[in-house]
């Protein structure tokens, strides 16, 4: 038995050495990444000092073009949105950025499914920021949303960088264009996709969803912190292909509308945006604008953003 236990201990000693080596290797690989997701995440966590930041999930990532905002407002901009992201990484990212510098404007694209509806579990959201779990804002999120054994798992560098290696290496060797965090989609919506999506959209719409009060409390925390930081924030809903007029769709947004009212934050509802909604040439799929659509939408949003950036603007409108 002694020999057995000794060999197990020996094995885990080796594992510990590999783990430490992996920690160094991943830090090196992350710092070396010049493109893609790894670069974006590292930029948001360690570099970003931009004037305008965009937070949210795929709608934020695909619909807001930083170059358009930069050119029009004369403010530097970075898109911190990520598909399937939601409030958990969004809040942590905001806190990591404000450790360095407070932005002038936060555009927060609300997505009820990720931001405050009950989903499978929190691990997929926490996974997006796991690499930075040694940073205080991320550690706080883990304390709130992680399970009781998560701190033990996070001791491992290999676990913290789990499922990152392929992306890390790709982001070093495969050059991609730097869109400042924006993830453009190319291609147009096809008739076939419309027929398919109409069917699935109906199925999606009839799903009843319940509110996750813990996640919702972090939406509130984000609003409260942004306000306390003296940063201008707008909460937005960007266009969908299909016109959304039914009450069921509206109900989904009531919690965030309530919070916007509470914190005197403009709620800009552009789900049905004239000139974009229903136009196949501006959409890549039913829910997401393509690059042309995103540029058109971002440009059309500029006057509104400019209005809210004006000093002493006092607002509470649902546009």
């Amino acid at each position: 038995m002694k020999k057995y236990l000794f060999k197990i201990a020996f094995f885990f000693a080796f594992v510990a050495i590999i783990d430490v080596a992996c920690g160094f290797a991943f830090r090196y690989l992350t710092a070396k990444a010049k493109y893609g997701e790894t670069y974006n995440n590292n930029y948001i966590a360690n570099v970003c000092v931009d004037d305008v930041i965009i937070l949210g999930s795929s709608h934020a990532d695909r619909h807001y073009v930083p170059s358009v905002i930069q050119d029009s407002l004369g403010l530097s901009c970075y898109n911190c949105g990520e598909p399937g992201c939601g409030i958990i990484p969004a809040y942590a990212r905001y806190k990591m950025i404000t450790e360095r510098k407070k932005p002038q404007l936060v555009i927060y694209e609300a997505t009820p499914g990720y931001d405050y509806f009950i989903a499978d579990d929190y691990s997929k959201y926490l996974g997006r920021i796991r690499q930075y779990s040694d940073r205080e804002p991320v550690a706080d999120m883990y304390e709130t949303f992680g399970d009781e054994l998560e701190p033990l798992r996070l001791l491992s560098n290999m676990y913290r960088n789990n499922s990152n290696i392929v992306q890390n290496l790709m982001d070093i060797v495969v050059p991609t264009k730097d869109y400042r965090g924006y993830g453009p989609l190319f291609g147009k919506l096809t008739e076939e996709a419309i027929i398919y999506n109409r069917k699935t959209q109906l199925e999606k719409d009839i799903k009843s969803q319940k509110i996750d009060s813990l996640k919702l409390s972090y939406v509130e925390k984000l609003f409260a912190d942004v306000k306390a930081d003296g940063v201008c924030i707008v909460c937005t809903l960007s266009p969908y292909f299909m016109t959304r007029t039914n009450d069921k769709d509206d109900i989904k947004y009531l919690p965030v509308i309530e919070l916007c009212r509470k914190y005197n934050i403009p709620f800009i509802d552009n789900r049905n945006y004239e000139g974009i909604t229903g136009e196949m040439e501006y959409f890549q799929d039913f829910d997401h604008l393509n690059d042309n659509g995103a540029k058109k939408y971002t440009s059309s949003l500029i006057p509104t953003l400019r209005k809210y950036l004006e000093p002493n603007s006092n607002y509470l409108t649902r546009e």
């Binding site: 992996c22 691990s123 290999m158 676990y159 789990n162 499922s163 290696i165």
Partner: peptide, 12 residues
């Protein structure tokens, strides 16, 4: 095997 598990496994 152990390292691959830690680096590429799904721990959900």
């Amino acid at each position: 095997v152990f390292t691959m598990m830690m680096l590429t496994g799904v721990f959900d």
